[in-house]
Each structure stands twice: as structure tokens, then as C-alpha cells.
Design a protein around this nucleic acid. Structure first.
Length: 271
DNA sequence: ATGGTGGGCCACCCA
């Protein structure tokens, strides 16, 4: 039984609802996780998703900033929202899924939007960077304490860190650029080891090959310059590693009209 | 080395 799951930082779900509809119409993942929805729960465009067949919806939003959501063709149970760093930010939502044909197997899905961290990669002078590192520390502690990856689990989202040299267009040039600094990579590594998790994208694309999911709005010609970074991730518990089946990173959507700066990433599992 | 472009929303915050 094949099950598909996508993650996409949409940078305002209301502004880009037509792009979401196009993606769901063309690729039809069973579940779509969104980040940076940028709206209160009551303003989430539920009707548009319901009309597309995604009638099971779980949201954790706030006005203007951040916000995560899960929309699905199948029921979502045990909806949970965890607050990190006691800031009241909407950066996490968890749901439990029981894909039909998976023999009653229940998968817990965690959808994260990790703080971007500002411009200066120094936690002493930049509180946003300090917040990013603290957020990652709290994630690692919680994943370990709750033994989240010991059962069937998937962690997705915009983690705002490109850990490998081939996850950025120029490793050396980005060593001091927030998203690719050694300290962030180390903190993300602790979150990864806290599972431990399996990196589903790198399961399909070997580490020597470049892989990006984000291209800045500030590049005049994003496709030609191709100065991308792999900021979006899908991690699965070791129990699901044998089920990893396919991957699609929809690079072309970065060229759609009024695009998000992130593209959708879809993983398929054979359960 | 710098500044470049997008969101939300109405003065700037954030990415």
C-alpha cells in the first residue's frame, strides 16, 4: 500500500492557495504539511482544501507570522501542538495517521517550522540566532525524552538548516551564513541523533549529489544562478526505513507565478 | 562588501 506525504513552506497559505490547489491537483499527496501559513486558525482557507478532497485539517496558526498545518485525505487523530522556548510561537503540530492497508499501523507525524535565526550567526549578539539554537536543543531533548522515533514516526518541515556540503550551492561561501554554519549543523545533528532518524531525502539522493529545496527571492534569476539550499526535510523513524519508496522535489514550482521561495518535497512510503 | 525581494499589515516586523 503506497502512502505519500509532502511538506511545503508556502509563505502565506491565503495568498498562495491557488498554487497549493495546483500542486494537490497535479501530485495528490495523501497528506500535505505546510509551514509559514501566516494566519489565525479561523482564517485558514479550510473550504478550498475540503473542495480538493483534503477534508481532514489540523492547524496551529497565529496572526501574521509562522503557523503550521496538516491537511489530509485520511483522518487525523490525536492532534497536538507543542510550544517551544515558551514564546507562544506556532511552530509545531503533531497528528497521528492510520493509512488504510497498513495493517492498522499508526504513524505519528510531526510538522516543524524552526526559527530562521536572523542574519548574524552569533548567539551572544543576535537573540534570533540564540533562539534558533535553543529551539533545536529543546527539540532534541523532547524527542529523546518522549522516545518519539522508537515507534512509527515521521518528522517534516522547514528546519532552516542545510547540513551537508552538497545541501548548499557553495559550502565555503556559506560557512558564516545562517542556515549552514557549523554550530547550527551540530545542533541539528543532535536533533537527528536524538531519534535516531533516517534522512529520507538523502536515502534517495546520495550525499555527493547537490539537492536544494529553497532559492532566495533576492536572486535576480534564481534558476540560472541556482544558489539554492536544502532547508526542508523529511525524517523517518528506523522502523519506516524499509518502507521508503520514492522522492519528488518539485523544483519547477519555484518558477510558477508569485511562488513561494520553498518548493514542495514529497516522499512515498510502501507500507 | 553590499544589497538585493518577498510576506503580513499600516509602522515596521519577519523571512
Amino acid at each position: 500500500m503506497r502512502f505519500s506525504l509532502a511538506t511545503w513552506n508556502i509563505n502565506s497559505v491565503r495568498l498562495r492557495i491557488d498554487l497549493v490547489a495546483r500542486y494537490l491537483g497535479e501530485h495528490a499527496p495523501d497528506v500535505l504539511c505546510l509551514q509559514e501559513t501566516k494566519c489565525k486558525d479561523g482564517d485558514f482557507p479550510r473550504a478550498a482544501f475540503e473542495a480538493l478532497g483534503y477534508s481532514h485539517i489540523a492547524v496551529n496558526g497565529q496572526k501574521g507570522y509562522h503557523g503550521v498545518a496538516v491537511v489530509a485525505k485520511l483522518p487525523l487523530d490525536r492532534i497536538d501542538r507543542k510550544e517551544f522556548c515558551a514564546k507562544g510561537d506556532a511552530r509545531h503540530i503533531a497528528v497521528t495517521l492510520a493509512p488504510p492497508g497498513a495493517g492498522g499501523r499508526a504513524i505519528t507525524l510531526h510538522n516543524f517550522y524552526v526559527p530562521a535565526g536572523g542574519d548574524e550567526p552569533d548567539p551572544v549578539v543576535n537573540p534570533k540566532f540564540a533562539h534558533k539554537l535553543a529551539f533545536l536543543d529543546e527539540m532534541a531533548e523532547w524527542i529523546a525524552a518522549e522516545q518519539i522515533a522508537r515507534s512509527d514516526a515521521i518528522l517534516v518541515g522547514d528546519l532552516n538548516i542545510a547540513p551537508l556540503e552538497t545541501d548548499v550551492w557553495n559550502h565555503k561561501a556559506l560557512l558564516k551564513v545562517v542556515s549552514h554554519t557549523p554550530i547550527e549543523v551540530e545542533h541539528l545533528g543532535r536533533v537527528f541523533q536524538a531519534g535516531p532518524w533516517i534522512d529520507a531525502l538523502r536515502h534517495h539522493v546520495p550525499p555527493q549529489d547537490r539537492l536544494y529545496t529553497w532559492w532566495s527571492y533576492r536572486a535576480p534569476d534564481w534558476a540560472k544562478a541556482d544558489k539554492g539550499r536544502r532547508l526542508d526535510h523529511v525524517w523517518v523513524s528506523p522502523s519506516l526505513k524499509p518502507c521508503l519508496d520514492g522522492l519528488s522535489v518539485l523544483r519547477e514550482s519555484r518558477g510558477w507565478d508569485r511562488p513561494s521561495d520553498h518548493v514542495p518535497v514529497m516522499v512515498t512510503l510502501d507500507l
